[in-house]
Design a protein around this nucleic acid. Sequence first.
DNA 1: CGGGTGATTCAACAAGCGTAGAATTCAACA
DNA 2: TGTTGAATTCTACGCTTGTTGAATCACCCG
Lengths: 203, 203
Amino acid sequence: MVTSSTPRGGRRPGATSTRAAILAAARAAFFERSYDGATIRGIAAAAAVDPALVLHYYGSKRGLFAAAMDLPFDPGDVVAAALAAPREERGLALARAALTAWEAPGSGEVLIGLMRSAVSDEASAARLREFLTEAVLVPVAASLEGPRAMLVASLAMSHLMGVLFARHIARVGPLADASLAGLVPLLGAALQQYFDAAPEAPA
Amino acid sequence: MVTSSTPRGGRRPGATSTRAAILAAARAAFFERSYDGATIRGIAAAAAVDPALVLHYYGSKRGLFAAAMDLPFDPGDVVAAALAAPREERGLALARAALTAWEAPGSGEVLIGLMRSAVSDEASAARLREFLTEAVLVPVAASLEGPRAMLVASLAMSHLMGVLFARHIARVGPLADASLAGLVPLLGAALQQYFDAAPEAPA
DNA sequence: CGGGTGATTCAACAAGCGTAGAATTCAACA
DNA sequence: TGTTGAATTCTACGCTTGTTGAATCACCCG
């Protein structure tokens, strides 16, 4: 008698894209449940795979997290492009760039997952700190001048984080439902106000 | 032979302030580790008490959380007081009121604990949503007019949440170290800008 | 065609979690 | 001075978690 059901162990026939499937499932899990909330068993189930395979590929939960949280784009580029806009449009440009960047599937999940995880996991918090400082704070502050440049830049960044948090994590009604087109101009004006609060750095 | 060590069970002599001690320990734990991260055993240890006693008093972890997250002040009052300021100073007043309110020990911990927990716990998220809507969004939006009132109000609120997140959860350098005096004027100006973005509601 | 390498699963471990129930000791009141 | 009730602890159950080691099967190279 030929049993056509899947064997209880062993390699599957055909090409294998399992590793990528696991990574995708992990990204999704960290995105919507944070580091602590996501479980290896859950990720494995979402990828239709045994939990042990996840660890076989990525060594540990931390290793999986590190792999999943590798940004699929360079956030420094996003910020740099926005800062290249003429001075009086930088707020708008930054708002548009940031919102569209993390609204795009595959990149926004990572940043939100990082934010989510930073709440309960100190290693994630450190990584988020480093990311925000290098990719956002330093470039933005460099475009300003004066003793308050760093503070002003971090306030602008905090607003972006706040929108992210309210829209995707707390899901507060009006922000969660708002369209990008409605959001960008208002947020852009607020950011612009910060750019105007400190003198421009010399070119 | 008289054993002077603590007995293995039974009531302790003297007045009993244990219940309050447990609640304080719980607040601190939820504040710095979020709902999921905090454990009953940990809270009990911090209160120098047996874990079972925590449940004896509060029934369940959820019950303890609900008790610990009862705000020791009425946030509606904070917002209302700020909105009573003259129109051109409302941003500043709101910034000052919000920052000092959650910087004060015993009240800020609650809001931050709620934010932290909202990330991994849907019940907390719902509670945070409700809190933000009732205590901040609706009053602020009521002071404005026009179709964008609600959106503008929630953007202002998102900025407050962003500062809270960056300062106390992610602990991004410049914001975490900044003094209230340095923060308030800058944040106030950004909020004021939102108040100016929508027409004032008729008195 | 035979063997090695890698893909995949199974079963199990130890630790930590929330929670329940019985047992012990004290305080207060009749 | 009993008796009742509240405060407190001990022990233990059942569940979930990250992680491990051995076992099974398919592919590929010689």
